[in-house]
Write a protein that binds this DNA or RNA. Sequence first.
DNA 1: GACCAGGCACATC
DNA 2: GATGTGCATGGT
Length: 222
Amino acid sequence: MEALRKQIITPIGQKLFEIYELLYNHFGPQHWWPGETPFEIAVGAILTQNTAWKNVEKAIANLKKANLLDPWQLYSLPLSALAELIRPAGFFNLKAKRLKNFLAFLCEKYNGSLERMFEEETEALRQKLLGVPGIGPETADSILLYAGNKPTFVVDTYTKRIFTRHGLISEEDDYEQIRLFFMEHLPEDISLFNEYHALIVALGKNYCRPKPQCHKCVLKDI
DNA sequence: GACCAGGCACATC
DNA sequence: GATGTGCATGGT
């Protein structure tokens, strides 16, 4: 913690770090991403789009049970069969296509190897992932950070909601502005980025729903 | 029964 | 460029 604090340059950075410490002391380490392999994490990142994680778990369990949680296996599976397996995750027809788009990218360009994919330079790979239909900025950053251990900050609904309510970012800031806000003010540290986003989700799930419960929130005095 | 979930693409103005 | 809408299951 102290080694990280020394690298903080700006007052905003200190504020962001103060919030991080409050969240960490309240919720403890989150051990993200909840997945066993980089491939499972990448699949989960696509399946969890606008969806409760509980539902994603069922879908991933179906894939595991069928022994299909493998790039080439999934890539060769008919679209309709894939859709049925991931049904519990919601938006299943749409997500089946999105998964296939990613699998085509992974299999055709990197021979199905995430290890090989992550050999690419981070920013270049980020742009390529964003070029895959169905992979937007949050999904791309989740894959980079949590499956690839690359230093990028993941922004989600909770991030925008929480930090807007605390006046640190503006309502009209877009995804990229918010991502850069965190990356410019915090030291570039993979573990920090990993834990910070996970803690934001923990806070969001508990206290920062659309109807806030700010009186109970650990950040109520910030 | 309403509301919400760890988004994204596309249509329409 | 901004704003609206479809996509769907499952928990609270």
